[in-house]
Amino acid sequence: MQAWWTMVRRELGGIFGSWTGYVVISVVLFLLGLCFVNLLQALNSEPTEQPVMELFYSTYYFWLILLLAAPIITMRSFALEKYSGTFETLMTTPVSDFQVVMAKFTGAMIFYMMMWLPLLGCIFIVRHYSNAPDVLDVATLGSTFLGIFLLGALYMSLGCFASALTRNQIIAAMGAFALGISLFLLSFLSISFAGRTGWLAQLFAHFSLLEHMRDFARGVVDTRALAFYSSLTVLFLFLTHKVVESRRWK
């Protein structure tokens, strides 16, 4: 536990000690701001029945932020340590491979969640200036952030996996980006199958990140989605652990 927390703090220190953390946060702030302005304009021009959070997810900004930021956050986790050689000093201390993987993942997750905090600011502004305080209730907000968290966990574990495979941060980022985009594009397959019946359509419906996120933003917490994200996250963390461990395979 002590070693795990020490490493988590080191991860965060590494992100904020270099430019990476600040650059990612400012880009996210910029995109969120743009998105917010767009949304307000849309709301002012015509009234809508949809919940505000759902409107937010139907813009491209959310996915852009997720797909771009995730590889940048995770690319350094293993690749940088391997490149600089500190991986060797880390792995010769009495810490287990599992602790290392979990610490890298937790560090990335904490940063990822911090990155979304400005979103709360946007929401409070809407709430404050609109005359309908029930537009954004706490439960919807909670389920939205749960969705962001689950989606983030999957993308962080995916990024950690890509980073563990290489000692080059660029390759790690590109790998995570390719994996992430492919997963995201599966959503569009389900759209093209929409309306059709059959097992294929059903299967792709389960893989649709867009669909899952729409539910979360509406305040619907579907256990199927929960199971989907947590099992994929566990799978990629398991694979990461295996990659880290492979150094000691005979």
Binding site: R10, G13, G14, S84, T86, P94
Partner: peptide
């Protein structure tokens, strides 16, 4: 001699000492 070059000396040694339990 790989080190975390962005850390301060004492901070680094503390990190390593805690890591070593």
């Amino acid at each position: 001699n790989p080190l975390h070059r962005d850390m301060r000396v004492r901070e680094y040694l503390k990190f390593r000492a805690r890591l070593k339990g």
